[in-house]
């Protein structure tokens, strides 16, 4: 167990800082408070990328987003991850932000950021201002009456699609969590973003061998071309043999409290032709049960169309544009 955890002293008023790009922002807005910050950057074990024996790769928690995106292994074997990372934030922020921190970033809900409005995520029990407020950027899947905030990461959408595993270290020892189980849906405890318990630390993220480097695409739709959060984003990874889909992965960002995957849709695509019609059926399956609000109902249709487009883009990954803008 790293010394950093010991330094936290089991006191919830103490916090860890790595890249600092989110926590320093939150501290300055007085959204997060900390009596003590423990800088974990000196943990050298967490700052690397290396091949695993099983053919997969481990992303050190303290490796920066930029170094990860531009790492030759990632660019070559996991281009979907590279593209998703490069669609997030800005070059400067990617140079600072770490992989572990990316998983732990907090929502960008307007009301979460305004300490003078009710927000169950920031101030449990105070109510949700977004549900009857301006909710253009909010969730359509997996939300609750307590919280309709979305998780803002791009990188995690790709990690979800790639079936990553989160390595966790802590006072009780090491453990792993499949990516799908790492982030939570809000339920009636939206103040808890993920299943990390206090005192635990992400040491790295493992990605299995299969990188879908032949057919992949990341698409991000937003209110300006770059340096803004997704209204809807899609990571698609396809394994195609003889014009037949052998395996499909589709994850959505910007629509839920966590990267959103629906296994039924991926199963449906198995052994099917990679056609617009089949992608459209998969999109319908993924968006089944989606619920919009006054200002974000458009996201349901937009997400369906984005899925279809991105699956088609994945057939020709070289058509992808900087900033994960739509192409073709």
């Amino acid at each position: 167990m790293p010394d950093a955890i010991t330094e936290l002293n089991g006191d919830i008023r103490n916090k860890l800082v790595a890249g600092g790009t989110n926590i320093n922002d939150l501290l300055k807005y007085f959204i997060t408070k900390a009596d003590k910050l423990v800088d974990i950057n000196p943990i050298k074990d967490f700052n690397s990328i290396f091949r695993l024996e099983n053919g997969g790769v481990r992303l050190g928690a303290l490796h920066t987003n930029a170094d990860t995106a531009y790492d030759p292994i990632i660019e070559e074997c996991y281009p979907l991850l590279s593209k998703a990372i490069l669609a997030g934030a800005s070059a400067q922020i990617r140079n600072m932000a770490t992989n572990g921190g990316n998983l732990l970033q907090r929502t960008r809900c307007y009301y979460f950021y305004d300490i003078n409005t009710p927000c169950n995520k920031r101030d449990p029990g105070s109510g949700c201002s977004a549900i009857n407020g301006y909710n253009r950027i909010h969730a359509i899947l997996g939300q609750s009456e307590s919280c309709i905030a979305v998780f803002p990461s791009d990188m995690c959408v790709a990690l979800a699609a790639l079936d990553a595993v989160v390595n966790i270290d802590g006072p009780e020892g090491e453990r792993t969590l499949p990516f799908a189980d790492f982030h939570r849906i809000p339920g009636d405890t939206p103040h808890i973003d993920n299943n990390l318990t206090y005192g635990e630390i992400i040491s790295g993220i493992d990605i299995p061998k299969k990188g879908f480097e032949k057919n992949y695409s990341y698409l991000k739709l937003r209110d300006r071309s770059s340096y803004s959060f997704a209204l809807v984003s899609v990571a698609t990874a396809l394994d195609i043999e003889d014009s037949t889909i052998k395996e499909a992965r589709i994850a959505l960002g910007g629509v839920a409290h966590k990267p959103w995957r629906v296994i039924e849709a991926e199963d449906f695509l198995k052994e099917k032709q990679p056609s617009r019609e089949n992608f459209a059926i998969a999109a319908d399956i993924i968006l089944e049960g989606a619920k919009g609000y006054k200002h974000n109902s458009f996201k349901i249709e937009l997400a369906k169309r984005a899925i279809i487009r991105n699956c088609i883009m994945a057939l020709n990954p070289e058509t992808q544009r900087p900033g994960a803008k739509p192409s073709l």
Binding site: V17, G19, N24, K28, Y29, A66, S90, Q92, I93
Partner: peptide, 23 residues
């Protein structure tokens, strides 16, 4: 002062970063 504009960009060990988001 919140990592939203880039005006505070400096080079730290040769890399461009936002000086407002680090201590």
């Amino acid at each position: 002062d919140h990592g939203q504009c880039g005006a505070c960009t400096v080079l730290v060990n040769g890399k461009r970063i936002l000086s407002c988001l680090t201590l």
